[in-house]
Amino acid sequence: MSILRVENLTKTYSSGSGPLTVLHNVSFEIQAGDTFSIVGPSGSGKTTLLGLCAGLDRATSGSVYLNGIRLDNLSEDERAAVRNQHVGFIFQNFQLLPTLTALENVMVPMELQGARNVEKTALDLLDRVGLAKRSHHYPTQLSGGEQQRVSLARAFANRPKILFADEPTGNLDTDTGDTVEALLFDLNREAGTTLVLVTHDLELAQRTGRILKMRGGAVVDQLVNERMSD
């Protein structure tokens, strides 16, 4: 079953020197449970594409279908409701709420869904990422790697059908990045979540089943990782 379908996606911004097109007729499809990476140099449109796929922004033309829901016809509030129901996020700069503890940050997506037993579930997730003893610390009291592990726990808190990760190890040193990377793939495999990863790191991309290569806002290649498909 297709979890994400992108059809002829184009994004153009207005600028002082005229219209600037950052995505050109991008199309692809991802099946439920797939792992998928989007790679390319800076300015190739990777993060813009990720934002459109997740319903954070609206394309100039083309369509995005997320879990069968067409996003381009929805209002901002409707897209936010779809994200809350179906999507998890991991960002390069963590984006934890600074006034909330690690535990409270992980609880937020579940509380927005009206879930029960949110504190126990959040503690279990923090334990899974090795931070049970840091649950009452605030983001400023945590290292970068610890903050990203909290964001990992938060991303899986609402049991998303699809997880979007934008350079999840980009702000971390190699050893810490390796730890976060291993946790990401382990949690994703256990949950059976579809993973869409934006990265500069080709070694990280090689851990996914498919790779979409971009340059200048256009798709230049789509590769199936033979090692993953065996």
Rank of each mutant, 00 (worst) to 15 (best):
Ser14Arg: 15
Phe89Arg: 06
Ser135Pro: 00
Asn117Met: 00
Leu163Phe: 06
Leu125Pro: 01
Thr121His: 15
Tyr65Gln: 13
His136Gly: 01
Val118Tyr: 08
Gly192Cys: 02
Arg70Thr: 13
Gln148Tyr: 06
Gln85Trp: 00
Asn225Tyr: 08
Asp127Ile: 01
Asp178Tyr: 01
Thr193Leu: 06
Thr21Pro: 07
Gly209Phe: 01
Val220Trp: 00
Val150Asn: 04
Arg159Phe: 02
Gly62Thr: 10
Leu50His: 09
Leu123Trp: 01
Gly62Gln: 09
Leu184Ser: 03
Asn8Glu: 15
Ala80Asp: 12
Tyr138Arg: 14
Leu9Val: 12
Gln92Asn: 13
Glu7Ser: 13
Cys53Phe: 03
Asp186Met: 12
Thr140Val: 13
His200Cys: 13
Gly43Asp: 06
Asn25Ile: 00
Asn117Thr: 05
Phe28His: 09
Asn117Gly: 12
Asn225Ala: 06
Lys11Arg: 15
Val180Arg: 03
Thr48His: 04
Leu4Thr: 03
Ala32Ser: 14
Leu112Ser: 00
Glu104Thr: 05
Leu195Asp: 07
Glu111Met: 14
Thr47Lys: 09
Pro41Cys: 05
Gln92Gly: 13
Arg116Trp: 00
Ser42Asp: 10
Val106Trp: 03
Thr194Val: 07
Phe89Gln: 02
Lys46Gly: 12
Ala81Leu: 14
Ser17Leu: 13
Gly55Lys: 11
Ala153Pro: 01
Asn117Arg: 12
Gly68Gln: 09
His24Ala: 01
Gly170Thr: 08
Pro160Asp: 10
Asp34Arg: 09
Lys133Ser: 13
Thr48Asp: 05
Gln95Gly: 00
Leu96Asn: 08
Glu111Phe: 01
Val82Pro: 07
Gly217Ser: 10
Thr193Asn: 09
Arg189Asn: 10
Gly45Ser: 08
Pro160Ile: 08
Gly144Asp: 04
Val39Asp: 10
Ala59Gln: 05
Gly45Trp: 07
Arg149Gly: 12
Gly51Thr: 01
Leu100Glu: 04
Leu49Asn: 05
Arg159Glu: 12
Arg58Tyr: 01
Ser15Ile: 05
Asn158Cys: 09
Leu212Phe: 11
Ile38Gly: 11
Ser75Asp: 13
Gly145Asn: 06
Arg189Gln: 15
Thr199Gln: 07
Gln85His: 13
Asp230Ala: 15
Ala122Gln: 06
Val22Gly: 06
Ala182Val: 02
Thr10Tyr: 07
Glu29Asp: 15
Asn67Trp: 03
Asn225Trp: 04
Arg128Asn: 03
Glu181Ile: 00
Pro160Thr: 10
Gly55Gln: 08
Val129Pro: 02
His24Asp: 05
Ser2Gln: 11
Glu167Pro: 13
Val219Thr: 14
His24Thr: 01
Val219His: 02
